[in-house]
Simulated assay, not measured.
Amino acid sequence: MAPPGDHRRYWRANLRYLAILLTIWFAVSFGCGILFVEPLNQYRIGGAELGFWFAQQGSIYAFVVLIFVYVYLMNRLDAEFGVGE
C-alpha cells in the first residue's frame, strides 16, 4: 500500500493535467470559435472561413487530440507512482 501522501500527489497531478487540458480545449473552442472569429475568418481552410471551421470542427479535433495527450500523460503518471497496468 502506498503512503497517504502519494495518493494526494497522484490526484493533484491528475487534476493539474485535467485543468491544463480543459483550459486548452476551452481556449480553442470558445476563443477561436467565438471570441476571435472575426480575425480568423480572414483565412480559409477547405473552402470555409477559419473561425467557422474552428466553431464547427476544430474544437472537436482539438478535443480528440487532447484525449490522446491525456492518455499519454496518465500512463506516465501511473508508471511514476507504480499504479500502471
Rank of each mutant, 00 (worst) to 15 (best):
Y43P: 05
I60Y: 13
S59A: 13
R8E: 09
L15D: 02
L15T: 07
L73N: 00
E38N: 11
M74C: 05
G84P: 04
L50N: 03
M74D: 06
Y72M: 05
V64Q: 09
E38I: 07
N14T: 13
V69M: 06
G5L: 01
G47W: 03
I67H: 00
G31M: 02
A13K: 12
V71W: 10
F81C: 01
L22K: 03
R44V: 04
A62G: 09
G33A: 07
G31H: 05
P39Q: 10
F36L: 15
I34V: 12
L18G: 08
V37P: 00
G33K: 00
W25M: 02
A19I: 04
N14Y: 12
I20A: 06
N41C: 01
E80M: 03
F52Q: 14
Y72N: 08
F36H: 01
A2N: 06
L77E: 03
D6E: 14
Y70H: 14
D6P: 01
F54P: 06
E38V: 13
G84D: 14
G82W: 13
I24P: 00
H7W: 13
P39T: 11
Y72S: 01
L66C: 04
V69W: 05
Q56N: 12
A48H: 15
V64F: 13
D6C: 08
L35V: 14
E80Y: 04
F36Q: 06
V37M: 09
A62S: 15
T23W: 10
L73I: 04
L40P: 11
L40T: 11
L21D: 07
A19F: 13
A48G: 07
F81E: 00
R16A: 12
R16F: 09
L40A: 07
G5S: 06
A2M: 12
W11M: 12
I20N: 00
L18V: 05
R76V: 10
M1D: 13
E85K: 01
F68C: 07
G46C: 15
L22V: 09
S29C: 06
G46K: 03
E38H: 08
R12E: 08
V64E: 11
S59I: 04
F30Q: 06
V37T: 10
F63W: 03
P39W: 02
G82L: 13
V83C: 10
A19W: 00
P3D: 09
G58L: 08
E80V: 03
F30L: 15
Y72Q: 00
V71T: 10
L18I: 09
R44W: 09
G5H: 03
S59M: 10
Q57G: 02
S59T: 01
R44D: 10
M1H: 13
A27R: 01
A62P: 06
L50S: 11
E80K: 14
A27Y: 06
L21T: 05
S59R: 10
F30W: 15
G33D: 05
S59D: 14
D6V: 12
T23D: 00
A13P: 08
Y70I: 05
Y17F: 15
G31S: 02
F30N: 08
I34P: 01
N75C: 08
I67N: 04
S59L: 04
W25L: 12
G84M: 05
H7G: 11
L21N: 03
T23Q: 00
P3S: 13
Y43F: 15
S29T: 11
Q57L: 07
V28P: 02
L21E: 08
M74V: 14
Y17I: 07
D6T: 12
